[in-house]
Nucleic acid binder design. Sequence first.
DNA 1: CGGAGTGGTAGT
DNA 2: ACTACCACTCCG
Lengths: 203, 203
Amino acid sequence: MNVSIERKRTDCAALPKGWQREEVLRKTGLSAGKVDVYYYSRGMRADTSLIPPIRQTASIFKQPVTVVRSQETDSSRVKRELQHGSQIKPKQLFWEKRLEHLGASNTHNEEIGAIELPKRLRAIGPGIHETTVLQSLATALHHNTHPVTGQTASKTSLNTNAGVFVNPDQPLMSNASIGEDDIKRQEERVQYARLRLQEALRA
Amino acid sequence: MNVSIERKRTDCAALPKGWQREEVLRKTGLSAGKVDVYYYSRGMRADTSLIPPIRQTASIFKQPVTVVRSQETDSSRVKRELQHGSQIKPKQLFWEKRLEHLGASNTHNEEIGAIELPKRLRAIGPGIHETTVLQSLATALHHNTHPVTGQTASKTSLNTNAGVFVNPDQPLMSNASIGEDDIKRQEERVQYARLRLQEALRA
DNA sequence: CGGAGTGGTAGT
DNA sequence: ACTACCACTCCG
């Protein structure tokens, strides 16, 4: 007897690189025969072309720049790469600065106004401005598997010896934590945005 | 602020006995403000017009026959009805015999073939045939809140003094119990039926 | 896999 | 335009 496939996991051309689509057939219950679809990105996180450091040259070919941290000697890096199977990629410090003063535009070439960050998220590091923090934070929120918390080192130590104290996995902002009241305020904003969307669609 | 009622569950005169109408206000989304109506029958099982004893006269007015068990005296019944708030309705014995030799037909007036019961389910009671047991069993499966097990009294006692020993809540079949192997066999049947349904829907 | 809840539409 | 109904998603 030819039993149909109950679990089927496939790569799929329409999906971003590294994503897989899995179809699972419901076998029992009232909804037996229906198919649940799951998407997995395990193994490869995010589009490699978006992982910093990023070239700001216009090109459809993704060519990430690879500059190593200055205080890591070549020999120590080779040893680490051998241990970890060369999976840990070096990260450029302050890659965000390369994108400074570049703004997004709409189709009419009108620049889109700046987005303001909450006051409590303060820039940290030498010569880092608010727009730069925004890029840094947005990238972290997109990529990081772990929580985005900001830099833990003190402001003075970062400004004097950034190479030592900057954590490249975290955005260039001061350490911040979110409380119940923050969550509540954000929920209210979402509620309000939904209301306005409703009204807009009705009209 | 005047908050409208979001969930309202009511008995409703227009509904069959035991049904409840619930109105639920949609709170979010594009259809916010609309009301969904749900009907529930929890608490009372089945349409009272289908509960035996059933008249076989054609009539849109439901007029159940009410014959009391002969061995229950009027005084004892009155006492019980006082205790239980007159909620226990008397049941006619062997009401199934009234429906004997009546078969279902399709729209072309062709009679639908008999359904066979498993061998182990044996008819019990004076002059009860397989088709009668089937009606009896089907009704029990539809109505009973408690498990359907069949008659517990012995065959001889039932045939000699049915009025005393017949349990009107159970179908007119010998006591039957279901084992692990029965369940397994049934599961296999269901699996097979589902497979065929899938194939049919695909074609 | 079930259930709550919303989106979408045929039919009036 | 509205209603009643079904389809579907999303979450636990």
